[in-house]
Design a protein around this nucleic acid. Structure first.
Length: 564
RNA sequence: GCGCCUGUAGCUCAGCUGGAUAGAGUGCACGGCUACGAACCGUGAGACCGGGGGUUCGAGUCCCUUCAGGCGUACCA
C-alpha cells in the first residue's frame, strides 16, 4: 500500500467535492475540477500536505486565491478521511494535517508487508531487459564499468520492486575488429616472450595492458614455443580461443564479487554463426534502405532522421558493430519478445544511441522504437590530488574494477557509484582509501545496526517487539516520531519514481534521509524505561524502520549488518 | 561547426509534473553520553542557483541567448 497515494487522493477528492458543493450553492461560477496539485511541503509548519488548487484556479474562477481557499475549506467534508485539519496559508495554499490514524496505519502496513514493503505493480508484470556493463572481453573491466554495473543492477532491482519482470543481460563482443586486435596483441607479446623483446613490433592501436603479457605468459607456460612457427592467422585464432574464455570467466568472477549476477551472457558470435546478422542486413536491403559506396554497404540512416549514414558491411566483407547491434536488438524484440529494453551505455556512446534510435524506426525491422530506452551515464572522471587522469584500456593504464574492490569495500563502492546517471562523477584516487570513513553508506548501516542491537537489548529485558495491530500507535505524536513515519511512508513512491525516471540513485538519497530521521528520533525519544504503551509503540517504529532500511539496502545491493 | 550532458555554499551533491524563507553531507567554529551503540545528535557562519533577456499571480525549475567544462561527430566498439 502506498499511503502517500492514499493521502493525496483523499485530499484531491475532498477538494473536488468542496468545489462541487460550492458551485451548487452558487458560491463559485462553475463546478469544474480545479487543476492544482497536492504536494509535500518542505517546511513542516505548513502541514503534511499542501494543495495549490486555490491559486491555480484564481484565473478561471476570477477570484482571489485566498478567497477561493476560504470558500473551499468551509465546504469541506472531512469525516471518514485521514485528514485532521486544513489551514490556509501564504498566497492561498491549503495545508492538510493527517490524523494519528494515518500515521498508525503507515506503520501497521509496513509491519504487514515486511520485506515486500515498497513493492508495487505499476510494471504490470511486463518483461523488461536491462543490458549493462557489456564490457569488451579484450581486457579487464574499468572504473566506468563499476559505475555502469551498479547503475544497471540497481535499476533492475528497482524495476523488479516496481512490478516488472526483469532480465539482466551482458552482451559479449566476442567477434569483430577489437577481438582481432586482441589476438594480434597477444601474438606480439608471445613472440616477444619467445624470441626477445625486439623480435617483433607491437601492433598499432594494440592493447598495451599487462593483462595481455600475462595471457601470453600463460600460453607460453602451457605450450612453450610451439606457436612460433605456425601461420599468423592460425596462431592468433588459437590465442583468441584461449584468451577470450579466460577473460570472460574473469569478468564473471569479478562481477560476482561485485554482487552482480546476469541472467544471460549473450555472445555476439551467435548472431554471426546463426546467419542472423546477414538476415537482418538483407531485410534492410530488401526494404530499399541501403546502398553501396566504395565497396561497402551503407545504411540510409538519414532517411530515418539521423545526421549521418552508417556502414553495415565493410569493403573487406565483414559486418560492422552497427549491423550486429541492429541484429542484436532485433533479437531482443522480435525473437525474445521483450516488452521493454533498457541499454545502459556510457556517454561516449551517446551519439551512437541517437543514431541507433533513428535506425530502430525503420519499418523493415518490425520493432517499436518506443520500447527501447537508452540510459546514458556520464563518464567517471578519475583524479589524483585534483588532477585528472586520462584512462584508456588500450594503453593499459586504467584502474580496474577488481583493483578498486581490493581497496574499497563492495558496500561502499556500490553505494558511491549509485549516483544520478547524468552527472559527471568525480572519483578521487587519493580519497579512495579514505572513502571508507566518508561514505554515507556507513551512516545508513549504522542506523540499521543500532536498531538491531536496540531490539535485541530490549527483548533481553523482556520487551519483545509486538505486532502493530496489538498496539496503540496513536501515542507516536512527537515531532521526530512523525517525521520518521512520514519518511517511511514515502518508500513506495520513491521506488515508483526511480523506476519511472530510470534513476535508482533516488533510493540512496531516500535511505540516507530515513537514517537521519531515525537518528534524530533516537536522540529525542527514550524507549527503555518509558511506560509500556509508549515503549511498545516506539519499539515497533524502530522495528519497521529497520525493515525499510533493509529493503532499500537490498535494492542497492549493500549489506545490512546487525553489528558494526 | 553541429549534437548530447553538466554548471546551485570552500568541496561533493539534492531540489519531485513551475509553488511558501533555495536544502543536505563534508570542511570550519561551538555544544551534547553516571541514560537503549557518540560510526550519533544539536547550534552557528557560509549561495547575485554561470551571465543576460523573456513567459506569469509565482522561475533554481519552462523558452531564447551567451559563457565555461565533459563526451560524441570512424569502413573501432
Amino acid at each position: 500500500m502506498n499511503y502517500i497515494d492514499i493521502a493525496k487522493s483523499q485530499i484531491d477528492s475532498v477538494i473536488n467535492k468542496a468545489v462541487q458543493t460550492a458551485a451548487e450553492k452558487g458560491l463559485i461560477p462553475s463546478g469544474d475540477k480545479l487543476n492544482g496539485i497536492v504536494e509535500i511541503p518542505r517546511d513542516t509548519a505548513n502541514g503534511d500536505y499542501a494543495a495549490t488548487h486555490a491559486m491555480a484556479g484564481a484565473k478561471t474562477l476570477r477570484m482571489a486565491p485566498k478567497k477561493i481557499a476560504e470558500l473551499l475549506v468551509s465546504e469541506m467534508e472531512l469525516d471518514g478521511t485521514y485528514i485532521e485539519k486544513v489551514e490556509i496559508a501564504g498566497p492561498g495554499f491549503m495545508n492538510f494535517t493527517m490524523n494519528a490514524g494515518w500515521y498508525g496505519d503507515v506503520i501497521a502496513n509496513i509491519d504487514c508487508e515486511g520485506a515486500d514493503y515498497g513493492r508495487s505493480d505499476i510494471g504490470k508484470g511486463e518483461r523488461v531487459m536491462v543490458e549493462f556493463v557489456s564490457a569488451n572481453p579484450t581486457g579487464p573491466m574499468t572504473i566506468g564499468n563499476a559505475r555502469g554495473g551498479v547503475l544497471g543492477d540497481t535499476l533492475a532491482s528497482v524495476l523488479d520492486y516496481a512490478g516488472y519482470q526483469v532480465w539482466r543481460e551482458f552482451y559479449v563482443n566476442n567477434a569483430g575488429n577489437q577481438v582481432d586486435l586482441f589476438g594480434k596483441s597477444i601474438e606480439a607479446r608471445y613472440l616477444q616472450r619467445c624470441l626477445g623483446e625486439d623480435a617483433v613490433e607491437f601492433p598499432d592501436n594494440g592493447y598495451h595492458g599487462d593483462d595481455i603479457r600475462a595471457l601470453a605468459e600463460k600460453i607460453y607456460e602451457k605450450d612453450g614455443d610451439k606457436y612460433v612457427n605456425v601461420p599468423s592467422e592460425e596462431r592468433t585464432a588459437a590465442f583468441v580461443a584461449f584468451g577470450l574464455p579466460h577473460n570472460i570467466a574473469l569478468m564473471q568472477q569479478h562481477l560476482e564479487r561485485y554482487r552482480i549476477h546476469f541472467d544471460q551472457w549473450f555472445l555476439e558470435s551467435e548472431l554471426h554463426e546463426s546467419g542472423y546478422v546477414a538476415e537482418t542486413v538483407q531485410l534492410l536491403a530488401d526494404g530499399g534502405y541501403t546502398y553501396e559506396k566504395d565497396g561497402a554497404l551503407w545504411l540510409k540512416n538519414t532517411a530515418f532522421g539521423a545526421d549521418k549514414d552508417e556502414v553495415l558491411r565493410r569493403s573487406n566483407g565483414f559486418y560492422t558493430y552497427y549491423a550486429v547491434d541492429i541484429a542484436y536488438h532485433r533479437n531482443k524484440f522480435v525473437v525474445r519478445d521483450f516488452d521493454k529494453v533498457i541499454d545502459v551505455w556510457g556517454a561516449d556512446h551517446h551519439g551512437h544511441s541517437i543514431r541507433f534510435k533513428a535506425t530502430m524506426t525503420s519499418p523493415a525491422l518490425g520493432i517499436d522504437p518506443e520500447k527501447l530506452h537508452f540510459l546514458i551515464m556520464q563518464m567517471v572522471r578519475l583524479t589524483r590530488d585534483g588532477e585528472t587522469i586520462k584512462v584508456s584500456k588500450r594503453t593499459g593504464k586504467a584502474l580496474t574494477l577488481n583493483d578498486l574492490l581490493d581497496e574499497i569495500s563492495v558496500d561502499a563502492c556500490r553505494f558511491f557509484f549509485n549516483a544520478k546517471p547524468d552527472t559527471h562523477l568525480e572519483f578521487d584516487l587519493g580519497l579512495a582509501v579514505r572513502q571508507d570513513s566518508e561514505n554515507p553508506v556507513y551512516y545508513v548501516q549504522y542506523a540499521h545496526a543500532r536498531i538491531c542491537s536496540l531490539l535485541a537489548a530490549l527483548e533481553q529485558a523482556g520487551y519483545p517487539v509486538k505486532k502493530a495491530c496489538d498496539l496503540d500507535l496513536s501515542v507516536l505524536s512527537g515531532e521526530t516520531e512523525r517525521e520518521l513515519i512520514k519518511q517511511l511512508s514515502l518508500l513506495p513512491e520513491e521506488i515508483k519514481l526511480a523506476a519511472r525516471d530510470y534513476d535508482p540513485s533516488r533510493i540512496n538519497r531516500y535511505v540516507i534521509e530515513l537514517a537521519a530521521r531515525f537518528h534524530r528520533f533516537y536522540n529525542a525519544c527514550r524507549i527503555k524505561g518509558e511506560e509500556n504503551a509508549i515503549l511498545n509503540a516506539r519499539l515497533k517504529l524502530a522495528d519497521v524502520t529497520r525493515q525499510a532500511i533493509r529493503n532499500c539496502l537490498s535494492i542497492i545491493g549493500v549489506s545490512a549488518p546487525e553489528k558494526m
